[in-house]
């Protein structure tokens, strides 16, 4: 029973969403399923918060290496939760300016907004900026000309890189119109529009078919392993 009920819920919810794509009257049912998922996800946040607290309190009490960082995590967690729940600094909503707590917890000027704007956003931007170095490192490894395929990859990447910078136009801009197709920017465009698009579409068609088959296995309850064991 513990497995049977979730399996049937998954099947019914999935079929409802599919049907609502073709029968607009069932759209309300589909919206209901989506809302139920959101409610479930919101409840799961409590479990998530409990997991964070358990892991970091355990680390703190056992004084495992890096326990000091756990104090930072738990402290930030408590401050953000407190500021968000009490809507500290949030102005009343435009729709109801006469109700003091009608504003959103993260509206401009609130503590949560401030934390996001001046702490989380710069930190995440820093992480994102580091991506450039990871790209360089991966490219260095991928473009080592160790076999024919790697040489082809390197050559293609070279054309694309040059074709998308001013250097490409500078190097081949003087080509006469008769061989204009060989200009680096045109070659780059051609590779992206023909080879890249063709390969990408092939992958996307495969993904779409894979999603359909996976969904069908779940709806028909053939694949139950997402709930645990296959049996």
């Amino acid at each position: 029973m513990k497995r049977l009920v979730p399996l049937w819920i998954a099947s019914i919810a999935g079929i409802t969403v599919i049907v609502s794509n073709f029968i607009p009257v069932a759209l309300g049912m589909s919206d209901l399923v989506t809302q139920m998922f959101q409610v479930l996800a919101a409840v799961a946040y409590v479990l998530g918060a409990a997991s964070i607290a358990k892991v970091h309190l355990g680390k703190l009490s056992a004084k495992r290496p890096g326990w000091g960082y756990s104090i930072v995590v738990l402290g930030c967690f408590a401050i953000t939760l407190f500021a968000g729940l009490l809507k500290i600094g949030a102005l009343p909503a435009d729709r109801a300016p006469y109700l003091p707590y009608s504003g959103k917890y993260d509206s401009e000027g609130s503590v949560v907004w401030w934390i996001y704007e001046y702490a989380i956003s710069p930190i995440t931007s820093t992480m994102f900026a580091m991506l450039a170095f990871y790209v360089a490192s991966a490219a260095f490894r991928a473009f080592r000309a160790k076999n024919v395929e790697a040489i082809l990859l390197l050559g293609t990447a070279f054309i694309i890189l040059l074709g998308r910078t001013a250097a490409g136009a500078y190097l081949t801009g003087w080509f006469p119109d008769e061989i204009g197709g060989l200009k680096l920017e045109n070659l780059s465009l051609y590779i992206m529009l023909v080879f890249n698009t063709a390969g990408n579409r092939a992958i996307i068609i495969g993904i779409a078919l894979g999603v359909a088959a996976t969904s069908l296995r779940i709806l028909l309850q053939i694949d139950r392993s997402y709930l645990g064991s296959g049996e």
Binding site: V46, G48, S51
Partner: peptide, 14 residues
């Protein structure tokens, strides 16, 4: 995602 954590927990335990 906390819901994914719960599902992963169930799957690994099973």
């Amino acid at each position: 995602r906390s819901l994914a954590m719960q599902a992963a927990k169930e799957a690994v335990q099973a």
